[in-house]
């Protein structure tokens, strides 16, 4: 078995090559209760920074999505302290100054682009900060659609901006006030409330385990 040496929190371990950072940590004996969620690159819980021997750069990525390399120095950042002011969406308006008034530190951005380089989702993070500054809420929502709130940009930002909280507000404003209503949603909610799916759900709830497994295997899968 090919092995590589990695340093987790400064201590060296030999681990099989090809593991993700997350699996390598578990292989080394860590039991992850924080810093681990979906294991599929969606939840953003497993933010990790690392350096490679002989390389000046500090890399940032998701532990569940990144393969170990020989000579990797690893530290997890399971939580990013970030300020999020309290707001009530119903009291806000989706207009130019809303993001800036709740997150005035946005104006401290020096356009260094460090956030963009840190983003494991390869988002144009700096552009989203700039769009926030100029009040372009749909632009922010679009640019940050794939943000997993890992907080790595926030950890690296010299302007101390709480990026993912800004993004969340922008997407909420965009969804609540700027995107066209989807009539089929109301229609489907009415159908649900009218009991359209009740019989089917009752049938599933009454099934035993084996019957349920068989039904699951035989289900229709959309192409």
């Amino acid at each position: 078995m090919d092995e590589v040496t990695v340093f987790i929190m400064g201590k060296g371990y030999r681990v099989p090559a090809g593991l993700t950072i997350m699996k390598a940590m578990e292989y080394a004996g860590y039991r992850l209760t924080r810093g681990c969620g979906c294991r599929g690159g969606y939840c953003g819980a497993c933010a990790t920074v690392y350096r490679l021997r002989g390389d000046y750069k500090l890399y940032a990525d998701l532990a569940c999505q990144t393969t170990v390399q020989d000579g990797m120095y690893i530290a997890q950042l399971p939580f990013t302290p970030a300020e999020r002011p309290a707001y009530r969406l119903e009291e806000l308006r989706a207009e130019g100054q809303t993001l800036l008034s709740l997150f005035p530190e946005l104006a401290r951005c020096v356009a260094c682009n460090t956030c963009t380089k840190a983003c494991p989702q390869k988002l144009e993070v700096m552009d989203a900060v700039q769009a926030s500054l100029r009040g372009d809420i749909p632009g922010v929502a679009e640019l940050t659609f794939d943000c997993v709130s890992c907080g790595l940009c926030t950890m690296r930002c010299p302007a101390e901006i709480s990026h993912h909280h800004v993004w969340q507000l922008a997407r909420r404003l965009n969804g609540a006030y700027l995107t066209p209503r989807a009539p089929h949603v109301a229609q489907r909610v009415a159908e649900v409330e009218g009991g359209k799916f009740r019989a089917e759900l009752d049938r599933l709830m009454a099934m035993g385990k084996e019957e349920l497994v068989a039904a699951y295997k035989a289900r229709d899968i959309e192409p």
Binding site: A107, C109, V110, A111, E124, M126, D127, Q130, L133, R134
Partner: peptide, 8 residues
């Protein structure tokens, strides 16, 4: 394209 704040 992709301009940023001038710094004000």
């Amino acid at each position: 394209p992709r301009w940023n704040c001038c710094g004000t």
